[in-house]
């Protein structure tokens, strides 16, 4: 388990991390969310000792993280970093060796991961000859080649096509199933919701919300999706106490009910307005959790 405990970091007058504390359990894919400048990248860099902390500790399985532990971690930074003129296979192999693999093990693992990520025919190409998406796959292979116990991925899905997102998503879930600790940041909340079991949302260097996706979705006020034939807006809800319209699109009204509201009353009002073609309770979406967490 990775634990970040009371991390503080300042850049000049800007507070990047403000007593940031959270943990990432093994065997889970954890989403790390927050607006731009929230401190996600700084927190990830702190795990690898790439940021000078004013206070706080990063622990791995209860012990402070040192260079020996970091060699067992995999990292994919936000600013992709590879030697442009180096051959793809050699590059992944080299990074594997820096993380402690022997020569033959690094060669074997490099071939395996490049094959798995659809780059088997590009092993002898220079990195600069690859497309953006393929470079991203090489970067992921470099983070995975040494079989890390912890994977920290900063925006791994940015700029990828749907096939690329699926390929990388599958790898992350698989690694978690194998017992790896996976933390990744993203602004693509739909993908995060699909991939992650837990999320941590931060802002201004502080944790705003953290928990399992299912629990967060089920928490908060009840939500209803109602479609009434002939009503493109949600005018029929006027006068219903404790009911707020969250969103109307394509004739579907998304309603938020507070504790005083009764779903039966809403159903009756809808039936009175016309033929009801859809009436369902809905989980809170991650985007809504995110917006509410950030106020």
């Amino acid at each position: 388990m990775l634990e970040l405990d009371g991390l503080r970091c300042r850049f000049g007058t800007v507070t990047a991390l403000d007593d940031l504390s959270f943990s990432v359990p093994a065997g889970q894919v954890v989403g790390f969310l927050g607006p731009n400048g929230a401190g996600k990248t700084t927190a990830m860099r702190a795990v690898f000792g790439l940021t000078d902390l004013a206070a706080g500790t990063v622990r791995w399985n209860g012990a402070p993280v040192g260079q020996a532990e970091r060699r067992r971690f995999g990292y994919m930074p936000e600013e992709r970093g590879l030697y442009p003129g180096m051959l793809v296979g050699e590059q992944v192999e080299y990074l594997g060796r820096l993380h402690g693999l022997g020569a033959s093990a690094a060669h074997e693992a490099s071939g395996l991961w490049l094959d798995r990520l659809g780059l088997v025919g590009r092993v002898g190409d220079k990195v600069e000859a690859l497309s953006h998406g393929n470079q991203q796959r090489v970067q992921l292979a470099a983070a995975l080649v040494h079989g890390p116990e912890l994977l920290l991925l900063d925006e791994p899905l940015a700029g990828l096509d749907p096939a690329g997102i699926d390929a990388i998503g599958d790898v992350l879930v698989e690694q978690a199933r194998l017992g790896c600790c996976v933390l990744f940041s993203s602004h693509q909340l739909d993908q995060v919701e699909d991939l992650c079991e837990s999320v941590t949302i931060i802002d201004h260097g502080r944790v705003m919300v953290a928990g399992r996706v299912d629990d967060l979705a089920a928490s908060g006020p009840r939500r209803l999706v109602v479609r009434v034939e002939g009503h493109r807006d949600a005018g029929w809800t006027r006068g219903l106490g404790g009911v707020a319209v969250s969103e109307v699109s394509g004739g579907r009204a998304r309603l938020v009910l507070d504790a005083s509201a009764d779903s039966d009353t809403v159903l009756r009002a809808a039936m009175a307005a016309g033929r009801v073609t859809e009436f369902a309770f809905e989980r809170r979406r991650l985007s809504e959790v995110f917006r509410e967490a950030l106020g």
Partner: peptide
């Protein structure tokens, strides 16, 4: 070049 290509961040994650 290691700094400009940002590969330095990947390297320093493994090497002092």
């Amino acid at each position: 070049e290691e700094k400009a290509s940002r590969v330095i961040e990947v390297l320093l994650a493994a090497v002092r």
